[in-house]
């Protein structure tokens, strides 16, 4: 699982222009996907709207297969973050609470704030305070929490011995099943309920 030393084709000023273009495409996709919307995000966790799951799971599979192919062809590097598992679990736990209370995650919050959500702007200020609180607590967190269960830059194939393509076959099977059940559930709900929420 060696990393290729791929030099990116776009660097310096063109890369900065590309950043705005890629960001804008991402912003449009988040907005038209419906996830720059508090109701859609919160109703995912209430099992009343499955948009977030559909978008994320599809992005992971389509993106993952492409990046796997690009990497195998020597055209892209992996960017794996070190898995400090206690930090990830605690952080994701806190993040999940915040995501339901705020109604956005950081990316969708920016798209929402830019498309008129005033409470998203208020929460954006909260995010800056949250980042500052983390920076202030970093000396403690980095000593106490991050080293616990820190397994390094590991991928699922590294710790299981199951090759990436097999992981994607399994993920596709799970996604196909889950999406089928969701679509059937949504069709039934639409047929039986005369007053759907949101």
């Amino acid at each position: 699982m060696h990393l290729f030393a791929v030099t990116p084709p776009i660097t310096q000023t063109p890369a900065l222009i590309a950043a705005i273009v890629f960001g804008a495409i991402f912003g449009v996709l988040l907005h038209r996907g419906g996830v720059a919307n508090y109701n859609v995000i919160v109703n995912q966790f209430r099992f009343r709207d499955f948009t977030v799951l559909k978008i994320m799971f599809t992005a992971i599979i389509v993106g993952g297969l492409g990046v796997l192919a690009l990497n195998s062809a020597g055209l892209a590097n992996y960017h794996i973050k070190a898995a400090n598992l206690l930090g990830v679990v605690l952080g994701a736990g806190i993040f999940g609470i915040g995501m339901v209370v705020y109604g956005y995650c950081p990316g969708t919050a920016i798209a929402a704030a830019a498309s008129g959500s005033v409470h998203a702007i208020v929460g954006f200020a909260g995010m800056l305070v949250g980042g500052t609180l983390y920076a202030l607590s970093f000396p403690w967190v980095s000593k106490t929490i991050l080293p616990v269960a820190a397994i390094g830059k590991k991928r699922l194939p590294d710790i299981t011995g199951v090759p990436p393509i097999a992981w994607f076959v399994v993920l596709i099977a799970i996604a196909a099943t889950v999406f089928y059940l969701i679509e059937r559930h949504e069709k039934n709900a639409a047929a039986s309920a005369s007053s759907p929420t949101t």
């Binding site: 973050k81 070190a82 400090n84 930090g87 990830v88 605690l90 952080g91 994701a92 736990g93 806190i94 993040f95 999940g96 609470i97 915040g98 995501m99 339901v100 209370v101 705020y102 109604g103 956005y104 995650c105 950081p106 919050a109 208020v122 929460g123 954006f124 200020a125 909260g126 995010m127 800056l128 305070v129 949250g130 980042g131 609180l133 983390y134 920076a135 967190v141 929490i145």
Partner: peptide
């Protein structure tokens, strides 16, 4: 408050 939690959690999880 939700924004504070989201960002604090995101940074702890990197």
């Amino acid at each position: 408050v939700g924004g504070v939690l989201v960002m604090f959690g995101a940074r702890m999880a990197d």
